[in-house]
Amino acid sequence: MGRLKKSKVEKSPFKLRQRQLADGRISLFIDHIHNGKHSYEFLKLYLLPETSEKIRRENNRTARLADDILRKRIEEYFEKEADRIGERDLAETPLSEFIDILIAEKKRKNNRTNQFVTVKGNLQLFHPDTRMCDIDKRYCIDYADWLRHTCVSRLGKPLAPQTTFNYFWHLGIILSNAYRMGYIRQNPWCLLDSSDKIREPERQHRFLTLDEVRILEDTPYHHELVKRAFLFSCFCGLRISDVLNIKWSDIYSNNGLTYVSIIMKKTSRPISIPLTAKALHWLPERNDDSPRIFRGLPSETQINKHLKKWVSEAGISGNIHYHVSRHTYGTMLMTAGVDLYTASKLMGHSDIRATQVYSQIIDKKKQEAVSLIDDVF
């Protein structure tokens, strides 16, 4: 099957660009592409060389202001596109085109869209050329059955239960938005019985116990930077996407504490985390030749291969990948008695329900411990 074409609605003709000036400043401007021609809107906003923490924070405010202007230009553009599309009966809109509109709306709000792009491709494989008016209760039930028994991954394997659940429930999100925006008069998702829907499987979050962390600390590994990065994340909870880009300028001291302050790549949310002595211990020696702290780390795929080998050498079983470090940090917080609200802020969660997972893990471990006592006696 050929590669799916992107809708014109999904594409924005506006891009935020940078230009280095002779005095060291970086000028921010918007590049507007129309009919193959470029026009430029210079914002009179400048990023200064980051010689102090105050300037770094000012640059962050300037960058956010430029992003706000860009989003406004994009929003105005897509409002015109929506008006153009609205000239015909909305119910006749192809499902793929509506998903493009939904993706564009989420991009304007800086929300993640990867899952919607994937689901769009799956829905086109399931029933090509589907219109909004074609979607009913039977369509939803058949889609659930197709995901369970027919749809396969890129490697040709059946979908994992969690993936099946995610794809199916994204159809529900799409239909809820279609009803909200007037593309359908009745939401067929509301007609489904609980038995018609795919249920979410119970998640198994692998994490390292304190003893396992100590074993890894004592186990040498030839790729020292991989070891340092992983243990650093165990004690601060940063994702690999953030660790790969973290800079020395992101670390600062205030009132005797050392913090790392970044904008998380996954959520685009700013976060400032106080670093423990353990986290600071696993930072590599500072190299003035590079602003990045963990410069030289391999790709995430290669890092996970290193982790499997290192963990095996340490005698620890289980599927250990880099994100296990974040789960480990979360369970450490719960074990230490940190309240849910504080833990959610330390981990950068926008929804406290994501943090509750770690509390549930600890509760389950307590129940297992009590059961062991009952078994002994």
Rank of each mutant, 00 (worst) to 15 (best):
I198F: 03
R214D: 07
L257D: 03
D196F: 14
S268A: 15
F235T: 05
G237T: 12
I262H: 07
M264V: 00
D218C: 03
E200G: 12
S261Q: 09
A229R: 04
E200P: 07
K266V: 02
I215C: 01
L244F: 12
K227Q: 09
M181T: 15
E224T: 10
P220E: 00
L191E: 15
C190P: 01
D218A: 15
L216V: 02
L238V: 04
V226I: 13
N255M: 10
A229T: 07
Y183W: 10
D250P: 05
M264N: 02
C234W: 05
S233T: 09
C234S: 07
I262W: 04
H222D: 06
F207V: 14
T267Q: 00
F207T: 12
L231M: 15
G182E: 15
I246W: 00
T258L: 01
F232R: 05
L244V: 10
W189A: 14
K197I: 07
K266D: 02
F207D: 08
H205S: 12
E217A: 03
S261E: 06
T258K: 00
S241E: 05
R214T: 11
V226K: 00
V226H: 08
L231R: 13
I215P: 01
W189S: 13
V226L: 07
F235Y: 12
Y183F: 14
S261A: 06
T267C: 05
G237S: 06
C234T: 06
C190F: 09
F235R: 08
I251V: 10
W248I: 06
L191H: 07
I246K: 00
L191F: 15
P220W: 00
P201W: 13
L257C: 12
L216H: 09
L191S: 11
M181I: 06
F230S: 04
N245S: 12
